[in-house]
């Protein structure tokens, strides 16, 4: 049962920060996905996409902050960094798929 993982102590006054930062990670994540989605759907102007990227940067920062606060291991930190890069591309892949799928399947209009 050799283990290199170390379970850090967390003091009582650090929890509020951890929960708030964890929420922020998800809120910024949704903010990013939502601004890209809404602008691609045409509900808001294209320029709002820039705000989306700002959300993404904030998300990266809050996730990094969360990792620091819970003392995550170097390996986990690297995995998180890769995950964040993937998340940057996810909505674009998503809308590429939507566009392509529509081109392919919507041609047979009123099929349903």
């Amino acid at each position: 049962m050799e283990s290199a993982i170390y379970m850090p102590q967390i003091a009582a006054d650090q929890f509020l920060g951890i929960f708030i930062v964890a929420t922020m990670v998800l809120i910024f994540g949704v903010g990013y996905a939502a601004s890209i989605t809404l602008s691609k759907m045409g509900f808001i102007a294209k320029k709002w996409q820039l705000f989306g990227y700002a959300f993404w940067i904030l998300q990266v920062y809050t996730l990094y902050d969360l990792g620091m606060r819970i003392h995550s291991s170097p390996f986990t930190t690297k995995v998180l960094a890769v995950a964040m890069l993937a998340y940057l591309f996810a909505p674009h892949l998503y809308f590429y798929l939507i566009d392509e799928a529509e081109k392919r399947y919507e041609t047979s209009e009123d099929g349903q």
């Binding site: 379970m7 850090p8 967390i10 964890a22 998800l26 819970i70 003392h71 995550s72």
Partner: peptide, 12 residues
């Protein structure tokens, strides 16, 4: 999603 992520990391 959110409430799950809140407490899913072992340190927390």
């Amino acid at each position: 999603g959110i409430w799950g992520f809140f407490h899913t990391l072992p340190q927390v």
